[in-house]
Design a protein around this nucleic acid. Structure first.
Length: 540
RNA sequence: UCCUCAGUAGCUCAAUGGCAGAGCAUCCGGCUGUUAACCGGAGGGUUGUAGGUUCGAGUCCUACCUGAGGAGCCA
């Protein structure tokens, strides 16, 4: 008898239904589930899908005391409820193991990304059906397991009837265990194919909303919790992992210590419209928009330091380059000047470029990314350009009309990136446009300039990082704050750092999602983070 | 916050002011090497909302809502 029929016969409920068991403990949900292996099973879960207890028909019959058609209203069988309750408050003790219900064995499997080392062997692949093609007695299942994609071929004439039926009723995004022989086959998209001998359904997916076609961004980001299964987000988020990992790897190799700065910060900056305010036991606190000030304090205790965490900007920015929640990596180096900061930043970027080009080629190909500009950036020394010279280039070659003390527009950044074709450090902006904590000097043209640089990436990526020398004079900082109409009192702890052995230091910040946007070539930065938070996007 | 553009089937889009349409998805059937497979059939609609012009509005006008792109600001 088929599993589904047996479950229905024993319980009176269809597979997938949620029966109202009277003995169901609070916070538990009960669902009739289908089989994993040979036995049909009744799943009793805590609502968290990873914490289910699975009961066999034998358990069920015991539980129902042979009340065959309907389990509603039966008494709680002694051997069932304690076991179910144990899930809500698990006791990881071997002495209790005899109380555990019969459990399901999860077959051992091989990750798709490692199958090339198992050609000729029989393996089990555990994953999801991402797409399906059929041709009469042949069924081609496109499987994915997070590590990669794989075509599995099911031949009707060479598998058992149950296996064929299971393969046929598999819907897109259903989860399954698939056993078969690994073969090299040029007809398969990845060159590797699984010749299926057995297939078990874990869970049949309902009508999956994302099909095999192009969609608009609103639709896909409304379904982002499902969209992350698709191939493009898969490739982008794997590149993101590489970028995040290699930044921290580089800094650690350079002797930097990772440390953390608070996300809840009391400082009320000049423009509070950019901050998310929270109620902290009755007092206002603000979500961090940078950990830099704290990092400067930590530098005096720990030496070379960096932090890496989420930051928040409540800007009314509605562009392809802005998120309200994004990750930021800040670093600070004691006894470093501006050229040291730029060299470190260049080394960091190149380390990431090299790693992505080497280890994420498959993902770049999926994204159809032309990597020539990335290779050039990896192999060429970045341009260093005074802002005044950048303005000269823009005014003379691109018909723009910037004044000497102007900031660069987004369009100007794009032009500069295209002009050189590699990343450009644009150096020494007018101090009036920059933050109070930057060291500054009077330029020969009479403009007060910060000792700083923005790193502009080519291909329209724009500003991806920034670095600057920090002001280490207590008096200058107090004056800078006063000039900007801010209270030195609020920054007293920050100023304190300068009173007790301040040293020259420099540091910077990188927007890793901006790097991901550049490296992947995706249009909008919301593609570069799993669950974007923008002006108009707060779910899922 | 400002400027521009767009909302029609679950999705992507057609439809001169004159019968509301196609592809994909879904369901049913066919196909033993498919590559976003293909072929045949079926179901699927208060054209974003509210008003207005007109014999007649998806189409023209007004307001609002939602989204997209850009600006400023930033990483």
């Amino acid at each position: 008898m088929a599993s589904r029929d047996r479950i229905h016969d024993v319980t009176g409920y269809q597979v997938g239904s949620i029966p109202p068991f009277s003995w169901q403990p609070p916070d538990f949900r009960t669902i009739i589930d289908t089989s994993l292996l040979d036995e049909p099973l009744l799943a009793v879960g805590s609502g968290t899908w990873g914490h289910e207890i699975l009961l066999t028909p034998a358990d069920l019959v015991r539980a129902s005391s042979a009340k065959s058609a309907n389990l509603t209203g039966i008494d709680v069988p002694a051997q069932v409820l304690p076991a179910a309750a144990a899930v809500a408050h698990p006791i990881p003790s071997a002495t209790n193991s005899h109380e555990a219900p019969s459990s399901v064995e999860i077959p051992s499997g091989i990750e798709i990304s490692k199958l090339h080392a198992h050609v000729g062997a029989e393996v089990c692949v555990r994953g999801w059906l991402s797409n399906e093609r059929s041709s009469g007695g042949m069924l081609f299942l496109e499987l994915r397991d997070g590590s990669g994609f794989l075509q599995a071929a099911v031949e009707k004439s060479s598998v058992g009837e149950e296996c064929w039926d299971n393969a046929q009723r598999l819907t897109r995004e259903s989860s399954c265990y698939v056993r078969g022989i690994v073969r090299a086959d040029k007809r398969a998209p990845t060159g590797i194919e699984l010749t299926v001998s057995d297939l078990k359904v874990i869970q049949l997916a309902e009508n999956y909303p994302i099909g095999r076609k192009e969609y608009g961004p609103e639709f896909l980001f409304n379904l982002r919790h499902l969209h992350v299964r698709s191939k493009l987000p898969w490739a982008i988020l794997r590149i993101r992992d590489e970028v995040f990992h290699r930044f921290t790897e580089f800094l650690r190799n350079e002797g930097y210590l990772r440390t953390d700065t608070p996300i809840l910060q009391p400082i009320h900056c000049e423009d509070s419209t950019q901050l998310f305010e929270t109620d902290y036991f009755g007092d206002p606190m603000y979500l961090s928009q940078s950990g830099q000030l704290y990092l400067e304090a930590l530098l005096h205790g720990l030496g070379k330091v960096y932090d890496f965490g989420p930051v928040f900007r409540a800007e009314q920015s509605k562009t392809r380059k802005h998120l309200c929640e994004f990750w930021m990596l800040d670093w600070e180096t004691p006894f470093a000047d501006q050229s040291a900061a730029e060299d470190l930043l260049e080394g960091m970027i190149k380390h990431v470029l090299a790693a992505v080009l080497e280890h994420r080629r498959q993902e770049l190909e999926i994204l159809k990314r032309d990597v020539t500009a990335l290779q050039r950036a990896r192999d060429t020394r970045f341009v260093r350009l005074e802002l005044r010279d950048a303005i000269t280039i823009l005014n003379e070659h691109y018909g723009m009309s910037f004044a000497a003390d102007d900031d660069l527009s987004a369009e100007a950044e794009e032009k500069l990136g295209d002009h050189f074709g590699i990343p450009v450090f644009v150096k020494n902006y007018p101090f009036s446009k920059k933050a109070f904590y930057m060291k500054h000097y009077g330029d020969i043209d009479g403009i007060e300039r910060a000792i700083c640089a923005d790193l502009i990436a080519p291909e329209g990526a724009g500003e991806v990082a920034t670095c600057a020398v920090r002001e280490n004079s207590y008096e200058n900082l107090v004056r800078n704050l006063r000039d900007r109409g801010q209270s030195a009192e609020e920054y007293s702890w920050y100023l304190d750092v300068r009173r007790y052995g301040g040293v020259p230091h420099a540091g910077g910040g990188i927007g890793p999602e901006r790097m991901v946007r550049w490296l992947t070539g995706v249009h909008h930065i919301r593609e570069a983070i799993p669950f974007p938070r923008t002006l108009v996007r707060r779910t899922p």
